[in-house]
Write a protein that binds this DNA or RNA. Structure first.
Lengths: 203, 203
DNA sequence: CATATTCTTGAATTATGATTCAAAAAAGAG
DNA sequence: CTCTTTTTTGAATCATAATTCAAGAATATG
C-alpha cells in the first residue's frame, strides 16, 4: 500500500552514532550524517524531526548497547568479585579501543551539551544511574559473600568516578599503564590490600 | 603618538574565559564575546587573530590562575600530608562553586575540541602534567617523612584521575556527598586505613 | 493497471556565525 | 593646530550549516 523504507534503521543509527562519537555533537553537520548514512536530509528530518531528535535516538542506541554489555559482564559468573574484576578489565580494554573516538560518548556529551538542553542531560543521567545500580548490586553480592567489606553503594560511585576520570586522563596521556594502575588501586581498595605496584594483566 | 588601548586586556580575557567556560568553545559565538567584553569584532581579531587564538589566550589565563592556586595550597604548610588534604578539600569546594560552569574548563575542552586542533590539545596536556608534577612532588615529601608509603607518581595520577571523574560525576548528580566521599577514599588509601564511612568536613 | 499511500530526493531557503575592511576616533609629537 | 600612528567601529561579506518542501519514486491493494 505504501512505499517501504529503503534502509536499515538500526544501521543508520549506528553510523550516525559513530560519527557523533568521533566528532562531537556540535561539530557534526547534517551533511556529515547524510554522507555516512546515505539518507538525504529530508528523510532524516522525516524520521527524527531535527538534529537533536536524531542525537537522542543515537544516545538510546549507544546506551542500550553499553548497558547490555555491562550487564553481561557483571552477571558473567557466580563469583561477584570475579565479575567486578572482569568488568574493570573490560573497561580498560574498551577505553583503549575507543581511543580514536575519545572515551565515552555520554561523558563527552554531558560535559558539553548546553544547559538549555535539559532533556539530553537528564537522559544521560538516567543511563549513568542504571550502570551504577547494576554495579552496586554486584558489589553487594560480594559483600554478602564476605569477599569485601566496603559500602556497596558508595564504592560503586567511586568506581564510576574513576572510570570517568580514566577516560579523561587517557585522552591527555595515552599511556595504557594509567588505566591498569587505576583498576589495580580500585581492586586493592576493595580488598583493603597493600597496593601491589604491579599492573593487572590484560586478557 | 598613537591612540592607546581603551580596555583592560586582563579583564577582557577573564570575561571571555567565563563565557567559554560556561558555554563551551563551539557554542560561544564571537557575538557573545563582543557582548561580554565590550570589544567589537574588529578589535578582537586585531588582538587575537581569530576565535581559536582568543581561546588559546583564555586557556593561558585559566591555567595560570589554576596553577598558582594549586601551588599555593600544596606549599601551604610544612606538613605535606596536611597540604595534600587541603588540596583535596579545596578541589571539593571549587567543584561545588563551579557547578554552573560545568567543572573544569580544561577537562571539558580536552574531551570536545576536534582532533585537528592538536595545538590546543597539547596545550592542555602540558598544563595537566604540571599540576600532576606538583602533586607528585608533595606526595614524595610525605613519603620521605614516613607519612605514607604509596608510589608518589602513581598516586598522583590516581588523584588526578579521581578529580577528573568527580567533575563528571558531579555534573550528572549534584550530590555533594560524592565529592567528599571520593576524597575520603583517596585519603584512606593514602594512609592504608579502613575506609571510615564518614565524610570529611568542609572548611 | 490505476490509485492511494508513504517514502525519497536534493535544491532552495533560512539562519547563524566567523571574519574583513574602510572609515572614524584618539592621542602625542613637532 | 596639523600630521602620523595606532586603535576602534560595525556594517558588509563570506562561509557554513540547519531545515523545508514540492516533485518524483516505490509499493500493495482493489
Amino acid at each position: 500500500m505504501a512505499r517501504p523504507i529503503g534502509y536499515d534503521p538500526k544501521e543508520v543509527l549506528v553510523n550516525a552514532m559513530n560519527l557523533f562519537w568521533e566528532k562531537g555533537y556540535e561539530s557534526t553537520s547534517i551533511q556529515d550524517i547524510v554522507a555516512v548514512t546515505g539518507l538525504k536530509p529530508g528523510s532524516l528530518y522525516n524520521l527524527y524531526g531535527n538534529k537533536e531528535g536524531l542525537f537522542e535516538a543515537v544516545l538510546d542506541t549507544y546506551s542500550t548497547m553499553n548497558l547490555e554489555q555491562v550487564e553481561e559482564v557483571l552477571n558473567g559468573s557466580d563469583d561477584p568479585f570475579k565479575n567486578i574484576e572482569s568488568f574493570l578489565q573490560e573497561v580498560v580494554v574498551t577505553t583503549i579501543s575507543n581511543k580514536k573516538t575519545n572515551g565515552c560518548l555520554l561523558v563527552k556529551t554531558l560535559l558539553v551539551v548546553p544547559h538549555k538542553d535539559k532533556k539530553i542531560q537528564e537522559h544521560i543521567t538516567v543511563i549513568f544511574a542504571q550502570v551504577e545500580a547494576l554495579l552496586a548490586k554486584t558489589i553487594q553480592k560480594a559483600v554478602d559473600l564476605g569477599q569485601t567489606t566496603v559500602d556497596a553503594k558508595q564504592f560503586a560511585k567511586f568506581i564510576i568516578t574513576t572510570i570517568y576520570g580514566s577516560h579523561v586522563y587517557y585522552k591527555s596521556d595515552d599511556d595504557v599503564g594509567i588505566l591498569r594502575q587505576n583498576v589495580q588501586f580500585l581492586l586493592d581498595t576493595l580488598q583493603k590490600k597493600e597496593h601491589s605496584n604491579t599492573a593487572i594483566a590484560l586478557t
